[in-house]
Simulated scan of single mutants.
Amino acid sequence: TPPNSSAPITPPLPPTPPILNALSPSPLPPDATDPIFARAINTLDETCRARLLRPAAEYNAEIIRIACETKKQQTTDSAKYARDRARYRKLLVKRPLALATMMSTIDTEVANAAARIRSLSSRRKTIALGIRRRATEAINEYRQRRLVALRVDLEIRLTRKAEDSRALEARKLQQRQEGKPMFDASASFTLQERYQHQPPYVPGPLPTQIGPLCLSPTEAASMRAVQDTPVNNQTPRILYSDGSLLNSGTPEVSQAFGVVDLTQDNTLTVKGRTDGHASSAKAELMGLLTAVLSAPPEQDIV
């Protein structure tokens, strides 16, 4: 049976709207000078961009799916109408006028089917675009609400900061009027120079340098004794180190450190002192450094 030739031809549709990229939030406002406000704005923008990625990805996936289904339907219709043309050419081979009429009818049906497919595809794309637009508008509304809240917080913070500054200036003025001296950290915490500089050179035996350390001959010999011990990495060797600061803040200030190796038949010790800036942390670190330098190079230590 030939296709129905009385079906109306669907009028042409407007072009399909293009695929939109993810909408980016508006740029930062010009009053983003407060560090806290600027960080909050950056965090808000990153959050909005992350939220915009999902509707954009869903929209693009829907557009691709619609395009694939449209192409599949067009391929199916093309194959169907190609079979119809071949069949009617065979049946009406001896009736050219009827064949021409039938070919015209099939061409009309092809155009109508293509128009229906385009119309359906356009409607589905419009629906997908509307869903994405609503999601984008919701995110932008959320951003605007957060911006208002952040600006309110900024105004409150700046107001409090200004009030604190005025109160501080008022206290300073009151102290000046009452003749009270202002707090001066440099005058209150004077640097004791004589305890911070290297002591004067005292003649003695020439030091021995091991790595960054300059040691006396006795200290160097005790360190060499530990370095010359046999290596055994079945278990890491345990070296104990310590450092002490004595008589801090006095002319008799001293910093000493020591290392003990209890893994040998005879206990080996390395001890010494350090000069310069007085610090308990410095003495402890010198002990750790001495322990590392005292161990044999291939020995695992803890």
Results as ranks from 00 to 15, higher is better:
18 P>K: 09
31 D>W: 05
228 D>Q: 13
55 P>G: 06
80 K>D: 07
154 L>D: 01
181 P>C: 02
267 T>M: 06
281 A>M: 05
298 E>Q: 14
151 R>A: 00
89 R>C: 07
71 K>C: 08
9 I>Q: 10
96 P>F: 00
131 I>D: 07
163 E>T: 13
54 R>L: 08
177 Q>D: 14
7 A>M: 02
90 K>C: 12
16 T>L: 03
291 A>W: 04
38 A>T: 14
217 P>T: 01
184 D>Q: 11
173 L>M: 12
134 R>E: 10
87 R>A: 10
81 Y>R: 05
255 Q>T: 03
251 P>G: 06
9 I>V: 15
246 L>H: 06
70 T>C: 06
51 R>S: 11
23 L>A: 14
44 L>Y: 02
145 R>T: 15
60 N>W: 04
238 I>R: 15
24 S>M: 13
116 R>E: 15
8 P>H: 08
33 T>N: 15
167 A>K: 13
216 S>C: 05
80 K>G: 01
72 K>S: 07
74 Q>R: 13
170 A>V: 01
21 N>T: 01
44 L>S: 09
203 P>I: 00
86 A>S: 07
261 D>L: 09
139 I>W: 02
239 L>E: 02
157 R>P: 01
260 V>Y: 07
234 Q>Y: 09
75 T>I: 12
255 Q>K: 03
188 S>A: 15
210 I>C: 04
221 A>G: 07
272 G>W: 03
16 T>I: 04
296 P>H: 06
141 E>F: 09
258 G>M: 02
189 F>W: 13
148 V>P: 08
184 D>Y: 08
203 P>C: 00
111 A>W: 00
48 C>M: 12
27 P>Y: 08
276 G>R: 02
284 E>L: 12
15 P>H: 03
95 R>C: 09
67 A>M: 09
270 V>H: 03
5 S>M: 08
221 A>K: 14
170 A>T: 03
296 P>T: 03
252 E>C: 00
247 N>E: 12
227 Q>N: 09
223 M>L: 15
257 F>H: 03
13 L>T: 10
153 D>Y: 05
